[in-house]
């Protein structure tokens, strides 16, 4: 089961039935974009406060959307994870969505204008994909099987799952999670991050990308590379370092040392999507230029090499 989107909703505490004052969230969400307070490629704020029981105010992102949503008259934070391609397993997506949601909750609860708190004793998960996650008994069983383990990792062994509230078979498949021993958002965030791996800053946000100088006209950043991986994109990661360097740290790419590249072009497909990296970007820049000159049209350079990856994405690898 590989839904294209998954959403997680945390409800407003103490009473989700009370109307939320949406207006401050226009400003709050704009400031989150300015200050990169929460995770995701944030784009804009959409105001749907005029629509009853709707998505309210939405912080629109490319990979994630945060809404102060009041569907069915129950207010909460609805976080939808999207555009990660079809091949990413549900447990990974779920943990990642939780990580982002919890980061947002901490940011909202800390904001003086928001005046909102969220309950940690129950959440709702929706499969925003009627094909991969149909709202049927079988669909629910498959969802439960995929979700139960990762949910218990984050919410504790007492977390129990039930079919969502709605009786309308046209609605999306929804799973209700009741938590026996609620923890605070910070603890949950730690657990979600531990499970996902990767970095965790103050609010669970990814650090802003440092200003790096372009090395070729065909650079991709480490963040963009992570996104490609995230989305399960079909591409070749080509590592042009020497074998000895691979033993220190590696991104598990295909290895052709730069000195041999010229003679081994037949090992690569001319129209493949290729991202090349070395240690710091020097050798890979040359490799990209050479490959492009040889007619490879879709070749890119990881700007800053594996060192940039270590700095920005995965500090658990060894620097050298």
């Amino acid at each position: 089961m590989h839904p294209k989107r998954i959403s997680v909703k945390f409800f407003v505490s103490p009473d989700p039935q009370l109307a939320v004052d949406l207006h401050p969230f226009i400003g709050i969400f704009h400031s989150f974009i300015q200050q990169k307070t929460v995770e995701g490629l944030l784009i804009d704020v959409a105001n749907y406060a005029h629509v009853p029981e709707g998505p309210g105010v939405v912080l629109i992102g490319h990979d994630v959307e945060y809404a102060i949503d009041s569907t069915d008259g129950r207010a909460g934070l609805l976080v939808t994870r999207k555009n990660f391609g079809g091949a990413v397993p549900v447990p990974y997506v779920l943990r990642d969505t939780l990580r982002k949601a919890l980061g947002m909750i901490r940011a909202i609860e800390a904001h003086p204008d928001a005046g909102l708190k969220f309950a940690m004793d129950a959440i709702e998960i929706q499969f925003v994909d009627r094909l991969a996650g149909p709202n049927t008994d079988a669909g629910y069983e498959a969802a439960r099987a995929a979700l139960e383990g990762p949910l218990q990792e984050v919410f504790g062994a007492g977390a129990s799952l039930a079919r969502g509230h709605t009786a309308d078979s046209r609605a999306m498949l929804s799973v209700r999670v009741n938590v026996a021993e609620p923890a605070d958002a910070g603890t949950l965030l730690d657990r979600a991050c531990a499970a996902v791996g990767g970095i965790r800053t103050q609010n669970g946000a990814a650090p802003p990308e440092p200003d790096a100088k372009p090395q070729t006209p065909w650079d991709v950043s480490a963040v963009a590379l992570e996104k490609l991986r995230d989305e399960g994109a079909d591409f070749v990661l080509l590592d042009v370092r020497e074998p000895a360097e691979l033993e220190i740290c590696s991104l598990n790419g295909t290895n052709i040392p730069s000195g041999q590249l010229h003679g081994r072009l037949n090992e690569l497909e001319r129209d493949a999507h290729i991202v090349v990296h070395c240690k710091g970007g020097g050798r890979s820049s040359k490799a990209v230029e050479m490959l492009r000159a040889a007619g490879f049209g879709n070749v890119w350079n990881l700007r800053g090499g594996i060192l940039a990856w270590i700095d920005q994405i995965d500090s658990s690898l060894t620097r050298y």
Binding site: I33, Q34, I43, H62, V220
Partner: peptide, 28 residues
């Protein structure tokens, strides 16, 4: 490109072919 209220900011969409002149692939 978007003005976030303080400064012009670049939205970090992945480097991909565009879908039209100055229209980035991943942009909504």
């Amino acid at each position: 490109q978007r003005h976030d209220g303080i400064a012009e900011a670049t939205l970090a969409f992945a480097d991909r072919p565009t879908k039209g002149s100055e229209t980035l692939w991943d942009a909504p």
